[in-house]
C-alpha cells in the first residue's frame, strides 16, 4: 500500500505488576492508510486502548515498557519524548470516551479549540479564535460564534464530543485516534457523531483508528477491522469478509453473542468462561480454555496470524493452520 500513513510493527507493551512484567499488548502489527477507517474491536482488558496509548506515548513511564516500531509516513517515531510532544495534537490527534472529563471545565470552549493552533501552528490568539469558530461550524455546532464563548458544562454530551472532534481536527492531523468516542452517548446521538467522523475523515483524507467494543459500530463505519483478544490481534481483514465469514472462533462467538434488534431472537448464544486476567494468561493459544474447537496442540503452541484470503488474517491452529 503506497498510501499507508501509520505502520505499527510488533508493538508489545508490558506493565510491571506484582514484581513481574506482564504484556498487556503482545506483538501487535497493523497498517493504516489515508482515508481509511480501521476498527480495533474487543472486550474490556483486551489491550485495545493500551495499543493506542502506546502509539501516542501517553502511558506513565514508570511501570510500563513499550517495544516495537511505529512509523508515521515511513519515519520511525516514539523514541524522543520532545518530538512526540510536537506530533501529538498536530499530526496525530485523539478523541476520548468521556468528553466531560477531557475538556477543561473552567476554560471557554472556543479557547480550548484554539489552543492547539497557538501551540503547534504559532497562530496569534485572534487568528486562532477565528479558526476555532470555523472548526466548531465544521463539526456542526449551531451558532458557533456565540457558543465558542460558553463553557463545557453548557454543552450536551453529543455537543461536547463534537467540541472534542473540533479540537482534534484543529491542526488537520494525518491520523485520528478515537477511543470509544460514542460509548457514553445515546444511540441517536451516536449515529450523528459517527456520521460526522466519517464525513470528516473522508473530506480531510485522514487515517481513522477507531477503538470500540461494539460490533454494531464496526459494521456501520469501518473499512477494515482487527479483533483483539487477551492482548493480541486474533483476526484482521476487510469488514464485510470478517462479518460474513469469521474464521477465528472468538470472532465467531462474539458475532453470535450480539443481541440483534433486527431479527427475532433465536437461542441466546454465549461464549463460556471469562477473559483471563493479565497475570494469569494461559500458555499456548489464550482463547483455548474457552474455545469449542480446542485440540491438544492449542495448549502449547501460540498461534500466529496466517493469511487466509488476501488481506484476511487469523491466528487459529484449527481454522487457519500454521505458517508453512
Amino acid at each position: 500500500m503506497t498510501d499507508t500513513v501509520l505502520q505499527v510493527r510488533n508493538l508489545t507493551t508490558s506493565f510491571y505488576i506484582g514484581g513481574e512484567w506482564h504484556p498487556a499488548v503482545r506483538g501487535v502489527s497493523f497498517d493504516l492508510a489515508r482515508d481509511e477507517t480501521l476498527a480495533i474491536v474487543g472486550e474490556s482488558g483486551c489491550g485495545k486502548s493500551v495499543t493506542v496509548m502506546s502509539i501516542m506515548r501517553l502511558l506513565p513511564e514508570a511501570g510500563s515498557r513499550i517495544e516495537g516500531e511505529i512509523l508515521l509516513d515511513g519515519v520511525p517515531i516514539g523514541t524522543d519524548p520532545e518530538a512526540m510532544q510536537k506530533l501529538r495534537g498536530d499530526r496525530m490527534a485523539m478523541i476520548f470516551q468521556e468528553p466531560m472529563t477531557a475538556l477543561n471545565p473552567v476554560l471557554r470552549v472556543g479557547f480550548q479549540v484554539a489552543e492547539p493552533l497557538m501551540q503547534h501552528r504559532g497562530l496569534s490568539r485572534e487568528a486562532a479564535m477565528e479558526e476555532a469558530v470555523r472548526l466548531l461550524e465544521l463539526v456542526g455546532i449551531p451558532s458557533a460564534k456565540s457558543r465558542a464563548r460558553e463553557y463545557p458544562h453548557q454543552f450536551s454530551g453529543g455537543m461536547r464530543q463534537r467540541v472534542m472532534i473540533a479540537m482534534a481536527l484543529a491542526c488537520e492531523p494525518e491520523v485520528l485516534f478515537a477511543d470509544e468516542p460514542t460509548t457514553a452517548l445515546d444511540v441517536t446521538i451516536q449515529a450523528q457523531v459517527l456520521g460526522l467522523l466519517e464525513d470528516l475523515r473522508h473530506d480531510k483524507g485522514m487515517g481513522l483508528l477507531l477503538i470500540t467494543h461494539s460490533m454494531g459500530v464496526v459494521a456501520a463505519v469501518a473499512d477494515r477491522v482487527a479483533v483483539m483478544y487477551a492482548g493480541a490481534i486474533v483476526e484482521t481483514g476487510p469488514v464485510d469478509k470478517i462479518f460474513a465469514g469469521p474464521v477465528h472462533p472468538y470472532t465467531e462467538g462474539l458475532l453470535r453473542s450480539i443481541p440483534r434488534p433486527d431479527r427475532d431472537a433465536q437461542d441466546i448464544y454465549s461464549i463460556p468462561g471469562a477473559v483471563p486476567s493479565i497475570d494469569k494468561m494461559p500458555k499456548g493459544c489464550r482463547f483455548a480454555p474457552r474455545c469449542p474447537l480446542k485440540i491438544n496442540r492449542c495448549e502449547t503452541v501460540d498461534p500466529v496470524l496466517v493469511e487466509i484470503t488476501p488481506g484476511h488474517f487469523a491466528a487459529c491452529l484449527v481454522r487457519a493452520g500454521e505458517p508453512s
Binding site: V187, A191, Q192, V217, A219, A220, I258, D262
Partner: peptide, 13 residues
C-alpha cells in the same frame, strides 16, 4: 440509529 452487526446492511448513517 441502533447499530446492527452486519456491514451488508450498512446504510447512510
Amino acid at each position: 440509529a441502533s447499530p446492527i452487526p452486519d456491514p451488508s446492511a450498512r446504510t447512510e448513517l
